[in-house]
Design a protein around this nucleic acid. Sequence first.
DNA 1: CTAACATGCAACCTTTTGGTTGCACATTGG
DNA 2: CCAATGTGCAACCAAAAGGTTGCATGTTAG
Lengths: 115, 115
Amino acid sequence: MSRVRGEGSRRGRRHKASIFAALGDETRLALLTKLSEGRRLSIARLTAGSSLTRQAITKHLRVLRQVGLVRGVRRGRERLFELDPGPLEEARRTVDRISRQWDEALARLKSLVED
Amino acid sequence: MSRVRGEGSRRGRRHKASIFAALGDETRLALLTKLSEGRRLSIARLTAGSSLTRQAITKHLRVLRQVGLVRGVRRGRERLFELDPGPLEEARRTVDRISRQWDEALARLKSLVED
DNA sequence: CTAACATGCAACCTTTTGGTTGCACATTGG
DNA sequence: CCAATGTGCAACCAAAAGGTTGCATGTTAG
């Protein structure tokens, strides 16, 4: 009902794009994969396997945090990060919407040809 | 079988990231949405509704084409673009994998606490 | 207390992105 | 034929991304 015809959900497109943009980096995908294992990890731990510096990883974590893919809580002298799958669901729905719309359009066109 | 333990599918992470990066732009998401309606559209048509120049749109289309999200065929003096949902499926699977791994990890941790 | 550890912050640098303008070239409608 | 239409290509630009180094600050183990 809030979806105006023909606009194809222009509302929030900027936000959805920012989620994909956050996912659109090899290093950040690797960070998310590590965090998806369930353990909360400090910046130092997340940096460990990487060839990048701690500060580079810190910047990537900030990008992930800004779109809500990750949360950081302070524990003593370290900050532990954990995954938040919320935005992932949103990304999945966006991908599904485009894919489904395409399938339905193809089906319509096909039925026109066949009749 | 080809998935080595512990690497979390490092193979192709660069490629997956490039797909998300292609999706991570408001203008490109809008282009994909238009193309998902099923009609093949020329560059001029795709530019029509936008505030950007034709060349800017052309560059965005090139990005989409490089990751296979879009295909362009020549018809006379114009080039018609159409969507290819293949990479969308791949993106969806990547998102699902991270999400699922997180859920399973949480379930494991929870069962440890409850026992 | 104090050395080692985990971060935070800022300045700086290079490469990539996202856009524009200008001009050349191919196609097509009359 | 030839003006209008649709692209392609290259040069150029400003801003954003991705990284690094250096230094300051908070915490904790002994």
